[in-house]
């Protein structure tokens, strides 16, 4: 592919496009460097990724990597929960029972037609103020943070004292994404031919077996690529839960940029981290998809 790219003739229009881009970015650079009198401090950024801990004498993650790990944790947990909710929603959307269908439709339309930010504020304050307090999660998390096997808990959930806000963030994000996952699942279920379900029914299968053995396995094969894509979308969407003080990558970046005044360096670094994560995953999924195609079904 690359050799073909280079051996292809460069058109004069390409040169103009490149020249315009160089001029444009050069101009911006001059503006920042000259007129704004911005002092670049790139050399300080690595210490905010990893720092050397004098006490334990080893390198540990600093704010940006901590934030990245929190983002990854939240994305994984929220995706798992969103898939569970989405499968339920998708099945409800294709149910025979009208009430079930209407309830699913209402849930979906509510989530789809309210800005995500507003949903997140509503759910978050409800969740963290009411549910988290009611379930006594806060005192439980503090107890865990002082217990002996805290290392295992921290591997999965990060700093346990931040657990209540993490779990609220996960739930909020999962509720929001479940609407989209639900629609993907619905399309998958509907793509399974009617004959398949009739064959299952004529074998006297229960609705549960019909779904579990015949419909969902076939549906999932078809919807795996869009589901993987939705996972990447969720990682990007997770940035908005920084607004409800979940210490993800974005919130950590806000704090860092404010305290050090390294606005450009911080945000460019954060952009690169998000890009590497999402682009890396999308390449991985594409590779897996191509590999799956080699296996006959």
């Amino acid at each position: 592919m690359w050799t073909r790219f280079f051996t292809r003739k460069v058109h004069w229009a390409d040169i103009i496009v490149v020249a315009v881009l160089v001029l444009f970015f050069g101009y911006i650079w001059i503006q920042i460097d000259g007129k704004l009198n911005y002092k670049w401090q790139w050399e300080r950024i690595p210490t905010y990724l990893f720092r050397y801990d004098e006490d334990s004498e080893r390198w540990v993650a600093n704010v940006l990597i901590q934030g990245l790990l929190t983002t990854i944790r939240i994305s994984i947990f929220a995706s798992l929960l969103a898939i569970v909710l989405g499968v339920i929603l998708g099945m409800a959307r294709t149910a025979k029972n009208l009430t079930v269908r209407m309830l699913a439709r209402t849930y979906l339309e509510l989530l789809r037609n309210i800005p995500p930010l507003v949903i997140i504020f509503i759910f978050f304050f409800f969740l963290s103020e009411q549910v988290v307090t009611a379930l006594n999660i806060e005192s439980w998390a503090y107890a865990v943070s002082r217990s002996e096997n805290v290392a295992i808990w921290e591997f999965f959930f990060g700093d346990m004292r931040r657990f209540p806000s993490l779990i609220s963030g996960v739930i909020v994000l999962a509720l929001f994404e479940s609407a989209f996952v639900g629609e993907i699942v619905r399309s998958g279920i509907e793509s399974v031919s009617k004959g398949q379900r009739e064959a299952a029914q004529s074998l006297a299968m229960r609705w549960r077996d019909e779904m579990q053995i015949v419909v969902l396995p076939q549906a999932f094969r078809k919807i795996l690529p869009p589901l993987a894509n939705q996972f990447i979308v969720l990682i990007k969407d997770s940035a908005i839960i920084s607004l409800v003080s979940v210490q993800d990558l974005t919130l950590r970046a806000v704090e860092l940029a404010n305290s050090t005044r390294m606005l450009f360096e911080t945000w460019i670094t954060v952009a690169v981290l998000y890009f590497v994560l999402c682009f890396g995953l999308s390449m991985l999924f594409r590779w897996l998809e191509n590999r799956a195609k080699l296996v006959p079904d």
Binding site: Q196, E198, A199, A204, M205, V214, P217, Q218, D297
Partner: peptide, 20 residues
Amino acid sequence: IRNVRMEIGMVFQQFNLFPH
């Protein structure tokens, strides 16, 4: 209806085998 269906086998025009 499942009890009745258990006693009735059905063969379809399009086979409808489970492909997976």
